[in-house]
Structures are given as C-alpha cells and as structure tokens.
Design a protein around this nucleic acid. Sequence first.
DNA 1: GACATTGTTGGCTGCTACGCCAATAATACT
DNA 2: AGTATTATTGGCGTAGCAGCCAACAATGTC
Lengths: 108, 108
Amino acid sequence: MTDKEKMRLEQRARLLKSLAHPSRLLIIEMLERKPCCVGELREAIGADITTVSKHLAVLKRAGLVRDTKHGTYSEYELLCGCVTHFVDCIEDGKEKDYLERRSLRPGE
Amino acid sequence: MTDKEKMRLEQRARLLKSLAHPSRLLIIEMLERKPCCVGELREAIGADITTVSKHLAVLKRAGLVRDTKHGTYSEYELLCGCVTHFVDCIEDGKEKDYLERRSLRPGE
DNA sequence: GACATTGTTGGCTGCTACGCCAATAATACT
DNA sequence: AGTATTATTGGCGTAGCAGCCAACAATGTC
C-alpha cells in the first residue's frame, strides 16, 4: 500500500469517526432540519453544554458543519446533505444487498 | 428524546464506529472486489494476523461481513454493497451540497 | 460599570480501542 | 501420529475519547 493510499484511508476513518457518536448523529439530524444554536442542541441531547460544544468542535474539524456568531449565540449549520441518508442505506442494505448478490451467483 | 430514539442513535453510532478505522476500510474495499481469507487481508494491511482477525470480528459483530470456513481458511465476504459509495458521497458532497442548499435560499 | 447569558477551552478521571505476544483450536499433509 | 498452516482468543501496555467542573471570553442588558 502506498503512502498516499494510507493517507486516504486515514482521512476517511477520521471522517467516519467524527460521525460515530450518538450525540453527534443527533446533532447532524437536527441540523438537517434547520440551523441550530448550541443551547437548542444541548436541550435535545441532555448533556452538559461543554460536552455539546466539544462535539460540535469535532464536527467542525471534520468539515461537516460551520458556525456563525450572532451576538452571544453560535449558530451551527450543516455543510453536507447526505449523511443520514447513507447510513440509512447501509442499514437497509445489509440484508438486501447480500441477497441480491447471492441471486446473481446461482451456481452456489 | 425517547429511549427508542436513543437506542436507534446508539445503534447507528456503533455501525459507523465499526467502519471508522483505516484497516477496516481497506478490508471493506478489498471485499467489495472479491471475498478474501484473513491472510490475503493481512498482507495488504501489513499488520499482525491477530490484529486483522480482530478487525474482522468487529465488522462481523456489526453485521457487515460474514465468514465461511474452507479447511483451515476463513473466507470473508461483504454483506453490504454500499459502504464505500457512502463515504465517497460525504466527501464529495461536503462543499457541493452546501453550495446547492445556499442557492435554494437566495434571500440570504 | 456590574451582572447575566451564551459558548469555548483546559484539566482531570474513567472507559474503551488498538496492537502485539503467547497460547489454543482446527484442519491439512506425510 | 507428528508437523505445518491458518485463524481465533486472552492478556497486557499504551493511547485516545467522553464527560463533567472550573475558568475564561464575548456579547447583551440594566
């Protein structure tokens, strides 16, 4: 494996890791509906606001959200529209795709 | 948030976590081409075979792969066809989707 | 200016993940 | 039977992550 390949995989793993937390998934789903400030997200998540702020920092570092200041508020908005949809696809597809691919190899 | 909602998010997070490692992503990509035994994967990854075996156990627990014994070999195959595609979309989409959604709100 | 509101950052603790080694299991080969 | 091959499991040390508290920064309100 080349260094470039390795870096590509590491980059992808970082992206997925940034999504791989229940609170961050909830944040993403809420931001898919509309931009939110930290307090709104905190309320939905039910954790300390510092924790939520750090989750948002993770998503920001991954390039998935961005924030804009409005007075004392920070409004966060999503930069990627296809996150939830594709997790749906993986979940739905696990069995279905397997069966489809089996049916393409009737010799087995 | 209901308990059911919470469990759904935790389940999704577990799924994403199982993908969020460079070696496991490489495994997925190799299995998208063809089923492989542990030794083949080990060679591509360049880690100890016990490490690879444990990565495969993670993917198996997540329901993404399954194994079949052939003599002393374990052949692993993918149970989900849309994994890599999913990450492609997120990576490609981060900027594009953002611009598209901006263009739908010309009032800003 | 003093105080309240909203967020962020640093620090600490506890938990989990990762990677290797050693040991074991299961099968193939002679 | 004895040895080799392939893979899995348990254990250990290390590293990174999550969550809370305390402290701080920035803005708005009186």
